[in-house]
Computed example of a mutant assay.
Amino acid sequence: MTRPLDTLPWPLAYTVSSDDCRTPMPLGFDAPLAEAARHLAELGYDGVEIQVRDVGAADAERLRAAVAPTGLRITALGTGPVTAQDGLSLTDPAPDVRRHALDRLLGAVRLAAALGVPVTLGQSRGTFLPGLAEPQRHWAEQAVRQLAAEADALGTRLLIEPQTRTNTSLWHTPDETLAFTATLDAPTGLALDTHHLESEGLDPVTAVTEYLPATGCVQLASDTGRGPLTVGDLRLPPLLRALREGGFTGWLTCEHVQEGDSARAAARSWTALRDAATTGLS
């Protein structure tokens, strides 16, 4: 097993797919959950962020059993497959599709609570259609209020990921996201993704510094092609330094395309972060 990443003061996770997904998500390790966790533990990762599709609290033991033998922790649940694999969103014009999407997301919230981890919300908030923007915004906002309230009632937290406008019509920047979450009665947070920040013209170091108090996790990818991280990435040392100086208490997740070989992609990102930590945190 590779020596632990002892120069990094936060848990380092990698995106994986739960076995309920039709196929592994392209931004995560391309293997069944237990196999992916084993490879990542051997590389020196601390945890996994699990993308789920159709699950509920009853599935908690199954996920624990798949990951526990490796010693990794489950850091969070992601909900991307709800939309990416089944086409469900909170803004679909069809009421039954919206209800199905909300039921799936509520199931993920309940599973996250059973596991004692947060749940992230990304593209499942949907895309507006011509002439329907206002009702679609209302549908999404009402659904997210329900998700946040359910998470809070169960003792966990919803993290909303600002995403580029090619993915969703809602909450592209941290400012837009926080303007909405300020209207919620339940506590929520941000999942900041370097790819989405850069796609919206935002500098990740500046964004992390400004929005750190609300940030639960930072998702990382290369600045070109959303690939694995590379040694010498000039963004990484100042990003890690900003997290340390700001007192960040969350976790980091490598979320990127696999470029054909997940084991090599994960190793590249692990090595790049260790190198950056040696430079940025020394």
Rank of each mutant, 00 (worst) to 15 (best):
T206S: 10
H256N: 12
L27F: 13
R125F: 04
A221E: 00
T278E: 14
G232F: 12
V119P: 08
T75G: 01
H256F: 09
L129N: 09
A76H: 06
L40D: 00
A276D: 06
R274T: 07
E150M: 15
R165L: 10
G126I: 11
P204S: 11
A214C: 03
T188E: 12
L184N: 09
L40H: 06
G71I: 13
E210T: 09
A140Y: 06
A148W: 10
A263G: 02
L273E: 01
L170W: 12
R157L: 15
G280P: 00
T70K: 03
A13E: 08
A133Y: 09
A179C: 13
A34M: 05
G78M: 05
I74C: 10
L234A: 10
L105T: 00
R226A: 00
H100S: 10
S222K: 05
H39D: 09
P204N: 12
F128C: 07
P93I: 08
D203H: 09
G116D: 12
L197T: 00
V16E: 04
D30C: 07
P130T: 09
V67R: 08
D20F: 07
W139R: 01
G47M: 03
E141Y: 11
A114R: 07
T75C: 06
L121C: 11
Q136C: 08
Y211Q: 05
L197W: 08
A65Q: 10
G250H: 01
P32Y: 12
R125N: 06
F128P: 03
A114C: 04
R73Q: 13
L236F: 02
V16G: 03
P162T: 09
D193T: 15
V117E: 06
Q163F: 14
T253W: 00
V48W: 01
D103T: 00
T230W: 14
P93H: 05
D92E: 08
V82G: 05
A153E: 13
T188Q: 09
L90P: 02
T79Y: 13
H195N: 13
L220F: 01
V117Y: 02
D203T: 11
D19G: 08
R3M: 08
E245M: 03
M1Q: 11
R235K: 14
L12E: 10
L5F: 07
Q85L: 06
T164W: 14
T183V: 08
W171F: 09
L40Y: 04
L27G: 04
W251P: 01
C254D: 01
A148K: 10
G227H: 04
Q146D: 14
Q51W: 01
Q219M: 01
E141R: 15
G155S: 13
R22M: 03
S17A: 07
A114Q: 07
R98G: 06
L170S: 04
V231M: 03
T156E: 11
L281F: 04
P237S: 05
G189I: 03
V117W: 02
A186S: 14
T2G: 09
A84M: 15
A65T: 05
T91W: 13
L158S: 07
D185C: 13
V218Q: 01
T224L: 09
A149L: 12
D275R: 03
L77I: 04
R62G: 15
T271N: 06
L111G: 02
A101L: 06
A66M: 06
Q258S: 12
L158F: 13
T215R: 03
